[in-house]
Design a protein around this nucleic acid. Structure first.
Lengths: 240, 240
DNA sequence: CCAGAATAAATTGTATACAAATTATTCATC
DNA sequence: GATGAATAATTTGTATACAATTTATTCTGG
């Protein structure tokens, strides 16, 4: 990764002081959200240390944090890999998202002001620009950030941190199970949702959000036909 | 803390292999859940290291993990303290719990078997025994573990890990804001809830759970009259 | 004796060294 | 050449050393 793009990424994140492991964490997190890091990728501590110019101590902290969000799996004595959610995991993740997003949508409908509506629109316009210009990776990340932005506006810290974890896990699941490349055109549904929120139509907004999540799930190959290279899953019935 | 009680605690937790920082984490977590560690308590790394017989590295990992669950607050360069949720935080925590517990209750109603019902009863009987024999601390912890057990039975890993964080945060909030000592008689409501689940009466179970959470919140002093020693909160209006 | 600066002690943040475990390679055997 | 044990290399886990920062104490002037 170039020095330039590194700086861009750091600047993107708001909030003043960033400690070193915040930066490393954010980079790896974004790489996963943008699907530049595929599920299953081994995350070597020393290599990452050289890339970011810090010691393993810092890398280790960042990886731990990612593992608490379950975006990375740390296998004792065997290092960290990017999580590869199973089909069952993915169903669980999307179920949890329905639970959280419903609450978030209702909260945002209750007390969203014009400035916030505008902020949401700005986010989705950026998403649209990315997809239309072919920058799928950035588009996927911005799509996730739209949902994070909503959670932020719900003004409930625990729900926000949970949503953070769920959005990145969803991104991993999409990376693994999305059927075809023409997939991620979520922005029109995002715009519809914003309109419903702006009108304060809570029922419609929740309904749109649920359908939106249904569509995300529909695009995934969750029929259990193992479009995966997970041998354990394939031969799960053998040694039973 | 004695060597003996340390071993007891370790044995309590299920699952085979425990790494060192798992043990330290579990001890501090339980101490917070049992309210032996009051909100605001400073958690010195070296002292904890001596207590548990490990280096600061391990303590640090445990504290980080607790801070990701927001049970502990790490202030840069100034160490870790047990979190002291504000009144607003507490409302947010209980709101999030309603969201999660509703989903959990519905899931458990859908597919709880007799063995699980029995397990739930066993947990609440233990809780009852503790409260009746005057061991309030253990009772509070078991009360929390009942809700964690439910989340486990919901069979949704993300919801479980979120519930874990919320239950311990609730415990902290109770420690800070509970009005009178005669408070925590949650076990009868727990028994009622189990009955509803056993009958598979989803609507009733959800209703009971919501009322249960209402009662927990009702027992708290959240009227903003600052039964707290938090000077920042008391003088929040001064330098505005 | 009290306020505030200067200094000392304690505590946290990061890097590094070494031990323990895992993974890769070599070598002997069939 | 393939299989499997022995060895070497890599990688992770933990402790420790030192730097940076914060907190406590001492000193000085009023």
């Amino acid at each position: 990764m170039s020095q330039l793009s590194e700086m861009k990424k750091v600047d993107i994140k708001k909030g003043g002081k960033k400690t070193q492991d915040d930066i490393v964490y954010a980079h790896i997190f974004d790489a996963i959200l943008e699907q530049r890091l595929a599920p299953g990728t081994k995350l070597n501590e020393e290599s990452l240390g050289e890339i970011f110019g810090v010691s393993r101590t810092i890398i280790r902290r960042a990886l731990s944090r990612l593992s608490y969000e379950q975006v990375v799996v740390i296998r004792p004595n065997r290092g960290a890999v990017v999580a590869s959610p199973s089909i069952e995991d993915t169903r669980g993740i999307l179920f949890a998202r329905r639970v959280v997003e419903k609450a978030v949508t209702e909260l945002v409908c209750d007390h969203a002001d014009n400035a916030q509506i505008e902020q949401l629109k700005k986010c989705v316009r950026a998403e649209q620009t990315c997809f239309d210009s072919g920058d799928r990776a950035a588009g996927i990340r911005l799509s996730g950030e739209f949902h994070l932005l909503l959670a932020e506006m719900a003004n409930n810290p625990p729900l926000l941190s949970f949503q953070r974890s769920l959005v990145s896990l969803s991104s991993l699941a999409i990376a693994q199970y999305e059927s075809n490349a023409k997939s991620h055109c979520s922005y029109d549904e995002h715009f519809e949702l914003i309109d419903a929120i702006a009108k304060g139509d809570k029922n419609l907004a929740v309904q749109l959000m649920m359908h939106h999540l249904d569509h995300i799930q529909d695009k995934l190959n969750l029929d259990g036909d193992a479009a995966t290279s997970d041998l354990k899953a394939i031969f799960a019935n053998v040694c039973k």
